[in-house]
């Protein structure tokens, strides 16, 4: 034991062992099981090898493509909303405008939604977007002279509700990431720029944005994953996995429906494998394109 702990070659492995074991037990093993199960027809206590039949069914499955379309659409729109808006808010909080106390309160209140449970938030949003004309969003709609809208019955209005949850919940978190990134930028850059006569907007585009790149890469990466893996928001908003015409069905929702609700675990594993490959493909190409894998220039 003593020898082991003092060995330069082996001790490091011992120290990362807890992580490796957790990774193996909770990640590698289930993942490989999923790959195996995706080629099987799984019934209680029996798995029959059926080759790629699950994937063939998946390829021709209209509902799967619809779920994939819903997930990708949601992911793209959350990127469009949840990168620029928090970025601008962070820049404002980081600037010299306004008193520190008000900004502190603003930061805290923007962050609170991230601490609440999605389950509770989903139920509240379901009530906000309810069909009756006394529901909050319909009162707002009425104020602007239209409605009542049957929010959760229409495809686009349902998407609006989902994006509203995403915005409400993640704006604060992303803002915090950007803010942290901004505060790490040395103030000398800004001083030098202002001496050279650069205005605030120019400074934002030429100093803040380039220096914030690692943060932006990180936020985009987790948002791609988060958008494609979204499930609970839709599940809570529609009070279950069945939305009218599957308008709120996501890839994970479909996996859940097939595997848990219809007990077709083999097929559900195939859905999961496809989702994993998709997320990996998007994120790895994005990370490569943004230069994250390149060695730091010395």
């Amino acid at each position: 034991m003593r020898q082991l702990l003092y060995s330069k070659r082996l001790a490091p492995y011992l120290f990362i062992l807890p992580f490796l074991v957790t990774l193996a037990v909770f990640w590698v093993v289930p993942l490989s099981r999923s790959f195996v199960m995706s080629t099987q027809e799984v019934l209680y206590g029996q798995g029959t090898f059926i080759g790629l039949a699950n994937y063939e069914r998946l390829w021709g499955d209209r509902i799967f493509w619809q779920a994939l379309f819903n997930s990708v659409r949601y992911m793209v729109l959350t990127l469009v909303l949840l990168v620029p808006i928090p970025l601008v808010l962070a820049a404002l909080v980081n600037s010299s405008i306004g008193s520190a106390r008000i900004k502190g309160f603003f930061k805290a209140s923007m962050f609170v939604p991230a601490l609440t449970s999605v389950v509770v938030a989903g139920i509240v949003f379901r009530l906000i977007f309810a069909e009756s004309d006394s529901a909050m969003m319909n009162q707002v709609a009425e104020f602007f002279g239209f409605g009542p809208v049957r929010w959760l019955r229409g495809d686009i209005t349902g998407l609006v509700a989902l994006l509203a949850i995403a915005l409400w919940r993640w704006t604060g978190v992303n803002m915090m990431y950007f803010l942290a990134g901004m505060q790490a930028i040395p103030s000398e850059y800004y001083e030098a720029a202002s001496i050279d006569g650069a205005g605030k907007v120019r400074q934002f585009f030429h100093i803040t944005l380039p220096n914030l790149r690692p943060t932006i890469v990180y936020v985009v990466t987790i948002s791609v994953y988060g958008g494609l893996a979204m499930f609970l928001e839709s599940f809570m908003l529609y009070a279950g996995n069945n939305s009218p015409n599957n308008q709120g069905l996501t890839v994970v929702g479909y996996l859940y429906r097939k595997g848990i609700e219809e007990n077709d675990l083999g097929f559900a594993s195939a859905v999961g494998v496809v989702l994993l490959l998709l997320v990996m493909a998007i994120n790895i190409s994005y990370l490569t394109a943004s230069g994250t894998f390149k060695k730091e220039a010395a």
């Binding site: 020898q3 082991l4 060995s7 062992l17 074991v21």
Partner: peptide, 19 residues
């Protein structure tokens, strides 16, 4: 011998975790 010891340890841990 050391390597064997390490792998035994890994295996033991994994088995404990699984059971």
């Amino acid at each position: 011998r050391l390597r064997t010891a390490t792998s035994t340890l890994v295996a033991a841990l994994a088995v404990t975790a699984l059971t």
